[in-house]
């Protein structure tokens, strides 16, 4: 059908296929995640942002792929971490990498900024949810824009927001309270933000707490750190202390 005919006053830019949803399809796919990853954590510190995510991809309850990194260095200014369906993350990663390549080939010295990528991702995910074919992923976008650290989340519906501490999945229940406590205490006692080292220690502690109780978590993980003039990813491993396990009572 001609796009002109489909135009209705409400459509700003005419998006073809906007009314074509999965309800007409016989086969519906991608409605449930298959190869999944668990929580991601992100915290803002005084001069940048740190993200943490383990490297396990589960297939149901099987710990399927144990070395699947999911912190992506987009450019010298942005890192992105993903949780949820791993293949959807890989798809987005390929598209983002292509965007960055296209941008680089312009050779104008201008690169993408974190808020731009955050908004772009929210539009991509919202568009897919509106087609009822969601990308089953949650993304954290971290970076520094105009010397101000930025941390934002987008979920599979396109729900986007920014905050100083974000955690998804089980992390939202187990790690987020610890992160909020650390940040609030620092603000109340010293009227300042966490330092880089404090932020990293906080994330390490949170990953350990998650490892003890999140059955889909893993002891190998990565921390990505972005500051005004550096971006790095560290590979880390937990040293869990299972001696404490015997102190847990009531589950026998």
């Amino acid at each position: 059908m001609d796009i002109k005919q489909q135009w209705i006053p409400g459509n700003f830019k005419s998006v073809p296929d906007i009314g074509h949803t999965a309800q007409h399809d016989v086969v519906q796919h991608g409605w449930t995640p298959i190869t999944t990853t668990t929580s991601v954590l992100g915290v803002v510190f005084d001069s940048g942002v740190a993200l943490a995510a383990d490297t396990l991809t589960s297939y149901g309850s099987m710990a399927c792929f144990q070395n699947n990194p999911r912190i992506l260095t987009v450019n010298q200014n942005i890192i992105v971490a993903a949780a949820g369906e791993y293949s959807d993350y890989q798809f987005i990663r390929d598209v983002v990498e292509e965007k960055v390549r296209t941008e680089k080939s312009l050779n104008d010295g201008i690169s993408m900024k974190p808020k731009a990528l955050h908004t772009w991702l929210s539009r991509v995910l919202y568009n897919r949810r509106t087609k009822m074919k969601p990308l089953w992923s949650t993304f954290l976008v971290a970076g520094v824009q105009n010397d101000v650290p930025f941390l934002g989340e987008i979920d599979k519906l396109g729900t986007a927001f920014a905050d100083e501490q974000i955690a998804s999945g089980y992390g939202a229940y187990l790690a987020l309270p610890l992160m909020r406590k650390a940040i609030d205490e620092k603000r109340e006692k010293f009227n300042s933000k966490l330092t880089k080292d404090e932020a990293i220690d906080l994330l390490k502690k949170c990953m350990e707490v998650l490892y003890y109780r999140d059955a889909r978590s893993h002891d190998k993980y990565q921390i990505g750190i972005v500051t005004k003039d550096s971006v790095e990813t560290q590979n880390l491993a937990l040293k869990p202390r299972w001696e404490v396990a015997k102190l847990v009572q009531g589950y026998e």
Partner: peptide, 19 residues
Amino acid sequence: GCWCDTLSLTNIIQSQLKS
């Protein structure tokens, strides 16, 4: 309401107002 719809709707309105 549904925050993802809010974001979408307000973006469209703001674009329309610019046009």
